[in-house]
């Protein structure tokens, strides 16, 4: 099963990276959102997958049954989902504000920090 899922994870990465290579901010953001899912799935599959047995210790038992899912990647992913969501929301608002000010989301035209016609550096001492 992991082998098949690895291919799906690869598709997630491919799509995310293709979107992020765009020149428009809004598509880059879509890519970032998908990239979060791709990374989470990578972690999930790397921790091996089991079917339908959540890592919960049953009544009367002191330990997980052998068939239970691996809890460690789940804990990692849970944190990652929340962080990537706040990151995504922040980027989205930042892009929105940039658009309001610059009237564009084309990164080729966002050249305030590195203007195309920047003067050459001074040659004196």
């Amino acid at each position: 099963m992991e082998g098949f899922m690895a291919v799906v994870v690869g598709i997630f990465f491919t799509v995310a990276i293709y979107l992020m290579l765009s020149q428009y901010i809004i598509r880059i953001l879509l890519g970032v959102a998908i990239l979060g899912n791709a990374v989470n799935m990578l972690l999930f599959v790397a921790g091996r997958v089991t079917r339908e047995a959540p890592p919960i210790i049953g009544k009367g038992a002191d330990m997980l049954p052998a068939t239970a899912a691996n809890p460690l990647p789940q804990a990692l992913i849970l944190t990652a989902i929340v962080i990537s969501f706040s990151f995504f929301a922040f980027l989205l608002v930042l892009a929105y504000r940039a658009y309001q000010t610059l009237k564009t989301d084309d990164t080729h035209q966002m050249r305030l920090a590195e203007p195309e016609d920047a003067p050459p550096p001074p040659l004196g001492y």
Partner: peptide, 13 residues
Amino acid sequence: ALACGAGFTLLLL
């Protein structure tokens, strides 16, 4: 993008 995706797939495999 495909090279990266393939890379992650192979890594995971």
